[in-house]
Computed example of a mutant assay.
Amino acid sequence: MNFYEELGYLVLGSRMRRLSEAFLSEINKTYQAAGIPFDASWFPVFYLLSQNDSLSIKELSDITGVSHPAASQLVTNLKNKKLLKTTTSSDDGRRQLVQLTKAGRALLEQILPVWDAVKEAMEELANTDPESRHLLPALSGIERSFRAVTLSERIGEKLTLKQSKHEQNL
């Protein structure tokens, strides 16, 4: 058993970050090897815009679960690369609608086969180990639990109980 396995939930965030970084690095290597100028961190925006003609920055933020400033920064970065454009909503002049440019749509056509291959490879990988098959449902369960009661609230309750027991034993 390695260090991370021994510490269990104490290092869950670190393990998930390590796994995420390794996953994204491998995906970026795949894009590079195929000669596709795409970064895996752009995936949520490109995927959502592949399914919708346009979305507001707020919609992108809400759907992906990132802050509005983070979504806005990514959109600005992709606009600077000429992959996205924004237009003012005809309904609300304060609302900017995000769309793929012609270059963005061309890039999307290049990356769609990569997405299919990633999905197939990950499904194959998950099926090589019986425990791996439960990863996505387990992540969904943890996310639902975090939304119901935050981890900091749960930890606070445990600390309050421990403090209360400690004071009773004095």
Rank of each mutant, 00 (worst) to 15 (best):
A22H: 04
A33N: 08
L10S: 12
E21R: 07
V75G: 08
S90R: 10
T101N: 12
P113R: 08
R17E: 13
I57S: 02
S50H: 03
T101V: 10
S61G: 04
I36H: 04
A117Y: 08
H68N: 12
K29N: 13
N80R: 12
D39L: 07
P44W: 01
V66R: 14
K85M: 14
Y4H: 11
A71S: 12
Q51Y: 06
Q51I: 04
S20L: 10
A22E: 14
K29M: 07
K82N: 15
D62T: 07
F46W: 00
A121W: 06
T87L: 11
H68W: 08
K85W: 06
Q110S: 12
E6T: 09
R105G: 01
M16T: 08
I63H: 03
F23L: 15
P69L: 02
G13Y: 08
A70T: 13
L19E: 14
S25E: 15
E109Y: 00
A34V: 00
A40Y: 03
G35A: 03
S50V: 06
I27G: 00
Q96I: 01
L78V: 04
S90F: 09
P113C: 05
Y31C: 00
T76M: 14
T30F: 01
A117T: 12
E59H: 05
G104A: 09
K102G: 12
K81M: 11
E26Y: 01
Y47K: 04
L24A: 03
A121C: 09
T87K: 14
G65K: 06
F38I: 05
S41I: 02
M122C: 12
S14C: 06
A71R: 09
L108Y: 01
T88R: 14
S67W: 02
Q32V: 04
E123A: 13
R94G: 06
S20Y: 08
F46R: 05
A34P: 03
V114W: 06
A103H: 14
N80W: 01
V45R: 02
G8W: 05
V114L: 13
A103L: 14
S56R: 02
K58E: 14
F23G: 03
V11K: 13
L60G: 01
D116V: 10
N28Y: 01
K79D: 11
I27E: 07
A106M: 11
L84I: 05
D91V: 09
